[in-house]
């Protein structure tokens, strides 16, 4: 039974004001003098309570810097919460920053294997998937070349093909609906819809309110790291649109 539960989750980034602290600065300034490079705390998420059950398709909306991607990474287990509880049941497949994380000197074929293994595939299970991944990417003979020769679009094609070749229980998606050129975008959209139909639980971050309207049955509106509204897609999107249209609204 796939489910996600967040109880009073807070996530605070502690960063240096100017740059990272060297050991020399740590010894000299932090111990003997007042630091000129103090820590600054950024509260990315504050007291977030969420329960998402199997079968739900949840969209996350909010202004830039509202904490949407951070929330997704926290759900994926990449960011541990500073306080509160995160309980996730089910195997997670995440689609964010997908064009990153290639071994530049390895070929496309080899990178398919690396990424697929990281997603939990084994050599046996990968054997059946590797050709469909290659076919979907439409990279042909380029797969025999090291990926450092690939263009940005080719990176994204390959990454998307690998990332969407799994059967996820929980699918976390961050703005990957517009990958590649126009023809590939159509294919990608169809693939996403197939994947979403198979997944037991979906959390989708997007600024494309029209897409969220057709894909999700529930939407969570994040505002400066807190849940401002959580409800049906129509209700929350309408409230968000009204908020955005408000004259004299402070810039996000």
């Amino acid at each position: 039974m796939a489910s996600i539960l967040l109880e009073n989750v807070c996530l605070t980034f502690s960063v240096r004001q100017r740059m990272r602290l060297t050991l020399k600065e740590f010894v000299v300034r932090s111990m003997f003098r007042q630091s000129r490079n103090p820590r600054v705390e950024v509260r990315a998420l504050q007291n977030v309570n969420l329960r998402i059950n199997e079968g739900e398709r949840v969209g996350i909306i909010g202004h830039n810097g509202a904490g949407k991607s951070t929330l997704l990474k926290l759900l994926a287990g990449v960011y541990p919460p500073t306080s509160g509880r995160r309980i996730v049941q089910g195997q997670i497949s995440s689609l964010f920053d997908i064009s990153l994380g290639f071994e530049p000197e390895a070929t496309g074929w080899e990178n398919i294997a690396f990424r697929a293994y990281l997603q939990g595939e084994t050599p046996r299970s990968l054997r059946e998937k590797v050709q469909p991944i290659a076919d979907f990417s439409e990279l042909g003979d380029f797969l025999n070349l090291p990926v450092r020769y690939y263009s940005a679009g080719m990176h994204v094609r390959l990454a998307f093909s690998i990332a969407t070749a799994v059967d996820p229980e929980i699918l976390l998606v961050d703005e990957v609906l517009s990958v590649g050129d126009l023809a590939f975008q159509e294919k990608a959209r169809a693939r996403m819809q197939q994947m979403m139909a198979r997944a037991k639980l979906i959390v989708l971050v997007s600024h494309d309110l029209a897409s969220l309207g057709s894909l999700c049955d529930r939407v969570v509106w994040l505002d400066h790291g807190t849940v401002r509204l959580d409800g049906s897609t129509q209700e929350v999107i309408e409230a968000y649109r009204q908020h955005v249209r408000e004259p004299g609204r402070a810039a996000a």
């Binding site: 990474k73 994926a76 287990g77 990449v78 995440s94 920053d97 990153l100 994380g101």
Partner: peptide, 9 residues
């Protein structure tokens, strides 16, 4: 880094 930012291995 790119793996660490994507998967909690």
């Amino acid at each position: 880094e790119t793996y660490i930012r994507q998967y909690p291995a």
